[in-house]
């Protein structure tokens, strides 16, 4: 599009240039609008306003700039855009990767902490259980020992009572014998039955 513009441009001022080329014969008439030239001479005029050079300059700037434009558009700019795109996508990818890794690390830390908490809770319950078990066992052991001791005590008391009872029984018989012996020694005659009632009355 641009190159054709350039050539379109070229045709218009080039007619001007044609006038310029004829102008010097006219001694500064055509140049007078633009160039306050000293001699009206092509060489003597101010070079940038020397219209005779315009066609050549327009042609060559159109060619060089046109080629430059095409070269930049077709070669340089796609390449630069590619370089910048690759860099941008690489940076974006790396940032995403870093974000993903950070997420993974955070998840690992969370999992570790949860496991730690669980293990701590487990340890607590195990400790509590074993403490409770030990307490229960100790209690039962104590109770059984107490029961057996009580039983033994009761047995012993029973035995003591039995011994005491037999002993007391023997005391009555001994007392009757002793009393009847005493009575007979005193010369009296006593009925066995009387002595027994007497002893009984005393004892009771």
């Amino acid at each position: 599009m641009f190159v054709t513009d350039a050539y379109g441009q070229e045709t218009a001022p080039s007619t001007e240039g044609g006038h310029g080329a004829e102008a010097p014969a006219d001694a500064g008439h055509a140049a007078g609008t633009e160039v306050p030239a000293a001699g009206g001479h092509g060489e003597g005029s101010f070079p940038p306003f020397d219209a005779s050079t315009f066609p050549s300059q327009i042609l060559w700037v159109a060619i060089t700039f046109g080629l430059f434009y095409l070269f930049l558009k077709k070669v340089i700019m796609p390449r630069l855009a590619g370089i910048l795109d690759v860099r941008e996508s690489r940076i974006a990818k790396d940032i995403a990767e870093a974000g993903r890794m950070k997420g993974e690390a955070d998840a690992a830390v969370a999992a570790y902490e949860q496991e730690l908490a669980e293990a701590r809770a487990n340890a607590n319950t195990i400790g509590q259980q074993s403490r409770d078990n030990a307490k229960v066992e100790a209690e039962t052991a104590r109770k059984s020992i107490e029961a057996s001791l009580e039983q033994k005590l009761a047995e012993a008391e029973e035995r003591v009572a039995k011994i005491k009872a037999t002993a007391m029984q023997d005391v009555g018989a001994i007392a009757e014998e002793t009393a009847s012996a005493i009575v007979s020694a005193l010369g009296g005659k006593s009925a066995k039955a009387d002595v027994a009632t007497a002893v009984k009355s005393v004892r009771s």
Binding site: A21, S52, W60, T64, F65, F68
Partner: peptide, 20 residues
């Protein structure tokens, strides 16, 4: 039309070649 290759044209070429 005077379409000569001038010192101006030469430096247009130089400009384009250097920049390109």
């Amino acid at each position: 039309l005077d379409l000569s290759f001038t010192n101006s044209s030469l430096f247009m070429v130089v400009t384009v070649v250097v920049a390109g």
